[in-house]
Structure formats: structure tokens, C-alpha cells
Design a protein around this nucleic acid. Structure first.
Lengths: 347, 347
DNA sequence: TTGTACGCGTTATCAT
DNA sequence: ATGATAACGCGTACAA
């Protein structure tokens, strides 16, 4: 006996039907008489045939059912960010509707690692990628593989999914202004990758779109507000920033605008540490609208962004492009939400 | 002119070489004279050929370079667990060494969603799957696709990667016993999926391996210690459990053993809330050895498990099986680490 | 409803 | 170093 695995042709032969009929029994694309189906299934059973080989099917179909998700950073780090997780959630859901799954990829793939060019993907979603991986991108686009970018810019002709960051942040600033705040400090996201954390001034070039736009929004209302850019969106980074900010008891701000909820949570902790009450002594705002594990009883005053919707929209754009339609860029609108971490400034 | 994309055959023809030679230029499997290479590359350039189609290559090679990772739960939820994230980290790393990427899959795939059976995976890693998806598993194994399970049991003949949960937890218990503790309460992980949280007793059947083994380890030293099983491994769940536990000021325990660091962090918060100092009034132990964002200045007394190594081991098992070797199950040893959250009981 | 015929794009093998 | 040949396993027009 031969040692090779049974193919659909073997099954067809055994069942006494043509290969195409057997194929149809498994794919269900065309009605098949019950008797024939039984015979084919029986033959498959007896031959130990377990269904079409996905690799061969994908060659024939020209589709693999796989969407690549490309991250700029170490995957472990990307998954520490609840915002990205929720985005992945929406993405998973919408590509699942198309029968596709997500393949995890990094942009700066080490040698031998799977890359956008070597993986059998039907489409790609770039997360926060700011135009690195230019070559792979060209290859992929030349192949006609649809590409979508979330919170980033990959150049001309690539649809983007983003937020009205500036307007949203401006709204939070207005809220503080309305309460009477004047001395405000901003705790920003990193201004570029590998940023170690620290105060930033005019001379610092902000390469991360999100950081820059939210910064502008805040300064539309509080021009010249000092900004401390954290090393990442983590509670501990917010804590570190908060410690620096509250250190000088003389020039202490009455409000801190953080560019993420995690940073805000850290700032609150720093405030407590410094013996300040939130919001009586200092107001704090966040950005994202996530549930921060362990932050209760505080309810952050924040900007709620549609994280899941962002992922979903990216998925839908992919689906549309795969159908041959063109997908437009889309910018979501955030919603301001008042919690119990902002109040009038102390007198 | 034809509208179809150029294939490697077209390139070969254009360059005046055989298809196999052209193929070799791209794969680099065999030395090629420089002149030939240039000619092929030039032909590819002029035809807009961007390299071999991964789908066709994977059919021919019999390998797709994709490893499926199957989760029992909603992906969004799985990624909230730092332990799983770090495990994914190790897994990513070790399969990358083989040139493979990770495809995210769920076990109870909704209709039309990508499943273990329809995805072109070379191997599969099951995470905490307790024997659901039996049918898909049979199909996959019949195909000769290697399968490995992390922290779970998928039946006979499937290599497992796990921990010495019982022994490790027993060690932490000994530490507390040595300090003089006698009234200990356990805060456990869920006893089954969909568990709402609550006290458990003998009659409750613990279906989750990890929970059961750690519970046994604790009770090896403190027989009959009461156990409250949380609804999940989150700080807020630990907080909820802690509130219940510290409510009764008369019968308050002198130590709480949590089955995860996140739960422990919540318990500490509950203790603070109840006006108890850690570790002076109550000792708390965790499990995992993760960095809990925002827990400083506490350093948890805990059991450090090799999360990344677990993922890496699973990846290596996969690689071995793909080579045709057999992979054995492996159980990692945890390491006890004393922090500043345990001390002698108050007198 | 079933069968025929062909192509999907590559790469391994072996000979030259 | 290069070339000829033969799969790899399947899906789908189209005809019957």
C-alpha cells in the first residue's frame, strides 16, 4: 500500500463518482443527491479522508482566508495596550464574517520570520505603522493585496481608519476651562518610538500622529501648556509623570490632561501619593474610555473612543476591497464623558 | 495584452531560462551564476513580478508557515490576561525561528469563521482547551498536523506543556505556615467557565485543572482552608473577593493566598480599603510573577512561573513534531519569590 | 444532477 | 550551474 494520504480523487474513485462531484459534496456549492453524498462520505470515511486540503483549496480559489495584522512593535507590548486589544476584537469579528482569520505579523521581521511578503494573506491591516516597511508594502500592493491602516499613515492611496483626536481633546480642554482651570499640564503619549519619557518643548519633533493631534487639541484651549511625554501608555508611566509634575508644590497644576486612560490612572495614583485629593485638589482627564482594572471608585472624566468600531471598520474596508470595491478612509468621532475626576479648581 | 499577473514561468521565459532556474533565483536554495540572476531579476522587474505566490509555494512545499493558536475564550478576553500574553510572546519567538507566524483561532468557531479544519496551518497550539472541539481535533490529527496543549488536557497522545502547580502552591503555603499563619483563606481562579464567583465547598466540582491543582497545593498545608473562587483573573475580581473576605472583622484571616497576581493585587486593595495594612495586619500571596501595573510600592510574595518559557516550549515541541520527532509533555517548575506582602501574623 | 478537462503557480528531483 | 519533467490537491467552467 502507498503511504500517501488520500486525496479527493481517491475518494471519488472509491465512491464511483467524478472528482468534481466529490468536491461539491464537501464544499456544498451545488446540490447533490442524497444517495451520492452518502456514498462519497462513506468512501471518505473508509479512506480516512478528512476533507479538502486548505493549502490546495487556497491556491485554486486564490484566497487563503487569512488577513495579516502588522504591528510596529514587539507583539507582547502591543497586547499590553487595551486599546489595541479591543481594536483587534472588532477586527476579528468583522473578518470572521468573511470567514477569515488573523495572522500576527511584525513590520521589522527578523530574518526568517514570517513577513507580509511571504505569508499567504488575502489582505493586510497595519496598526499604527508610520511608513516603515515601505518595500514590503510595495510588493504587497503590486500583488493587488488590499491594505488598510489604523491610526497611522502608510502613504497615498491606502485607506486609513482614525479618530478626530484634535477635536476630541479640545472638547475635554473646554470642559476644564469651563470649570475654571487655568494651570493645566499635559501628560502625552510617546512622541516617537524609543522615547524615554520627559518634558517636551517646541523643538521636539512629534512623529506620532496621535500624540501630535491630541497635543494640538489641548493647546487650542490652553496655549503653551507644558507637556510631559510618557514612555508608553501604562499606569506606571503615568505614575512616573505624575510624580514629576506634583513634585513642585508651588507651581502645581490644578488639572492634568492625560492622553490615555492608563496614564490618567497613574497620574491619579501619583496625586494620592502626594497627598492630593482627586478631584478636589487636582482634576484629571483621560482618553480612550476603557475600563481601568483596579481604578474604582474613580470614574475617569475622559474621551470615549470607539475602539471596537475602529477595528470593525478596518475589517469592513478589507472586505470591501476584497470584493473589488474601493474603501474610503474613515475618521470616527469620540465622545466626551464626565466622570468624578474633574471639578472646579481649589481656591 | 492579457490582464493576468505574471508568473514565475513568464519571468523565466522573458529571461530565457527555465522555470526551475528562475525559482531558484528567488528561493536561493541553489547557487546561481551572477549573470543569470541579474537577467531573471531584470525580467521580473520588467514584468512586475514580485516574487513567488505564497499560496502556490505552500501547496508545493506542503507547508504554509502558519501555526494556529486556539483559544477557548473570546480573544479579547484572552488578551486581557498577562500570563497568556507572555506565553504568546514565547510562542511567537520560537515559531518565528522556524519562519512561521501565528494564526488566531477560537475553538467554538461560529459558522463561517475560520476553524482549525479550514485554515492552512502546519500545526496547532491549544491554550487551556479542556477537550472541547473534539471533532476538529480528530480531523487535524488525522491529517498528521502536530498539536500541543498549554495548561490543559486534550486527551491521549497530545503533548502538554504545564506547571507543577500543586507543588508550587504548597511551597507558598509552607512559607506562610513558617511565618506562623493558621487562619488562611484562598482566593481561587474560576472553577469552570461561566463561573459567577463565590465560596466553594467540597461539593463544587472543579473542572479547571489549574484551579484544582493550586487548591490542592494550598490545602496540603492548610486543610479545610476556605476558598472563594473569583469570576476571572482580574484586579477587580480580587477586590470583590477581598471585600467579602474582610467583611467579617471577627473571623478575619491573617493571610490570603490568591491564585494569581492580579487577584492578589485586588485583595491588597480590599485590605487597604478595610483599613488593614499589608503585611502587618494581613499577608497576601499571589501566583504568576507578573509585573502588576500600578501595584508599586508593593512587591508581591508570589510564585514565579516561566510564562514565556511555556510558550517557547510549546513552539519547540511543534517544531520537533514538524521535523518528525516526537515531542514529550513537559512540566515546568515554578519558583517561590518573597516580596514585602507577607510577614508574621499580628499578635 | 453528474462528468470532463484543465489550470492554479510553484518547487523537488534528477539528469546534464 | 542549468534544464526537463512531474507532481502538489483541488475547484470550476462547460458540456452532457
Amino acid at each position: 500500500m502507498s503511504t500517501r494520504r488520500a486525496t479527493i480523487a481517491d475518494v471519488a474513485r472509491e465512491a464511483g463518482v467524478s472528482p468534481s462531484t466529490a468536491s461539491v459534496v464537501f464544499s456544498g456549492k451545488t446540490p447533490v443527491s442524497d444517495a451520492t453524498r452518502q456514498r462519497v462520505l462513506a468512501a471518505a470515511e473508509s479512506l480516512g479522508y478528512t476533507g479538502p486540503d486548505p493549502r490546495a483549496a487556497s491556491l485554486r480559489r486564490g484566497r487563503s482566508g487569512i488577513v495579516g495584522v502588522v504591528f510596529e512593535e514587539h507583539l507582547g507590548r502591543a497586547f499590553q495596550d487595551p486599546v489595541k486589544i479591543l481594536m483587534m476584537d472588532g477586527l476579528t469579528e468583522s473578518v470572521a464574517g468573511m470567514g477569515a482569520g488573523l495572522l500576527l505579523l511584525r513590520d521589522r521581521g527578523e530574518a526568517g520570520a514570517p513577513s507580509l511578503t511571504s505569508a499567504p494573506v488575502d489582505a493586510a491591516v497595519l496598526v499604527g505603522c508610520s511608513g516603515l516597511l515601505r518595500e514590503s508594502l510595495d510588493v504587497v500592493r503590486a500583488r493587488g493585496i488590499p491594505v488598510v491602516v489604523i491610526e497611522g499613515d502608510a502613504g497615498e492611496g491606502i485607506p486609513r481608519v482614525g479618530l478626530d483626536n484634535r477635536e476630541a481633546q479640545r472638547q475635554a480642554a473646554h470642559h476644564l476651562r469651563g470649570l475654571g482651570h487655568e494651570r493645566v499640564v499635559i501628560v502625552a503619549l510617546p512622541v516617537r518610538s524609543e522615547w524615554p519619557g520627559g518634558w517636551i518643548d517646541e523643538s521636539d519633533h512629534v512623529t506620532v500622529d496621535v500624540t501630535r493631534d491630541r497635543l494640538r487639541g489641548a493647546r487650542d484651549v490652553f496655549p503653551g501648556a507644558p507637556a510631559y511625554a510618557a514612555a508608553g501608555s501604562f499606569i506606571d508611566e503615568g505614575l512616573a509623570a505624575g510624580r514629576v509634575i506634583f513634585r513642585d508644590r508651588e507651581n502645581r497644576p490644578t488639572a492634568v490632561m492625560a492622553q490615555s486612560d492608563l496614564l490618567a490612572a497613574g497620574v491619579i495614583r501619583a496625586a494620592e501619593e502626594a497627598g492630593l485629593r482627586v478631584p478636589e485638589d487636582v482634576s484629571v482627564t483621560g482618553f480612550d474610555g476603557i475600563v481601568v482594572d483596579g481604578l474604582a471608585p474613580y470614574e475617569l472624566t475622559t474621551i470615549v473612543q470607539p475602539m471596537v468600531d475602529k477595528g470593525r471598520a478596518a475589517g469592513q474596508a478589507v472586505v470591501a476591497m476584497l470584493r473589488g470595491d474601493t474603501a474610503a478612509s474613515i475618521s470616527f468621532t469620540c465622545e466626551f464623558r464626565e466622570g468624578n475626576t474633574t471639578a472646579e479648581p481649589p481656591r
